[in-house]
Amino acid sequence: MKLIIDADACPKAVLQHCLAAGARWGLSVVTVASFNHQIVSDQHITVGNASQEADLKIVNLTEANDLVITQDWGLAALVLAKKACCLSPSGSEYRSEKMDFLLEEREIKAKVRRGGGRTKGPRKRQAEDDARFAAELERLLQQLTAEGNSKV
């Protein structure tokens, strides 16, 4: 099991929580970002700046029971299809049963933007967001570790 972070748009506090959790749990923490980002991590993979390049690298690295951190709904859907878990930086776990709705919402918003309209972006990150993320990260790591041990 490893922790993979889509570091292109990952808040610094989330990255720090992930690195600390990886150290506590003895997990490999892999960060992936385009060369436009300066990420400090022992296992950082830098990809080019082409569209979806970081996402494709993350999908290729992901195996069943890994935990991926991303805010990209499309990437989350691909990760879930590989039987991995996926968590947003806001602390929401992505679930397979909700992905159709999220992807449809993403398409509707993209259509509005292509037509010249504007859609609302995320609200400013608060300390509560960091606390919620940290708690959910720990819960998922406990769950995944317990599931991994029960398979042995």
Rank of each mutant, 00 (worst) to 15 (best):
S92Y: 04
S92P: 01
E104D: 10
L102T: 01
E104Y: 07
R106L: 04
E97F: 12
I108A: 05
G91H: 01
V112I: 15
C85M: 15
K109F: 06
C86D: 01
A81W: 03
S96T: 08
K82F: 07
S92F: 07
Y94R: 03
L103F: 04
M99T: 02
A81T: 09
R95S: 11
Y94N: 01
K82N: 11
L87I: 01
L87Q: 00
C85E: 03
R113W: 07
E93L: 01
S92M: 10
S88N: 07
R106I: 11
E105A: 14
E105P: 05
I108E: 09
E105H: 14
D100C: 08
S90F: 14
S90P: 04
D100N: 14
M99K: 09
E105Q: 15
G91P: 01
A110W: 07
K111V: 06
M99Y: 09
F101R: 15
E107T: 14
S96V: 04
Y94Q: 00
G91T: 04
P89H: 03
V112T: 12
E97V: 13
D100L: 11
L87Y: 00
A110M: 04
E97S: 15
S92R: 11
A110Y: 06
S88P: 02
K109I: 05
A110I: 05
A81D: 13
P89C: 04
Y94C: 00
K109N: 13
P89G: 12
S92T: 09
G91W: 00
I108W: 04
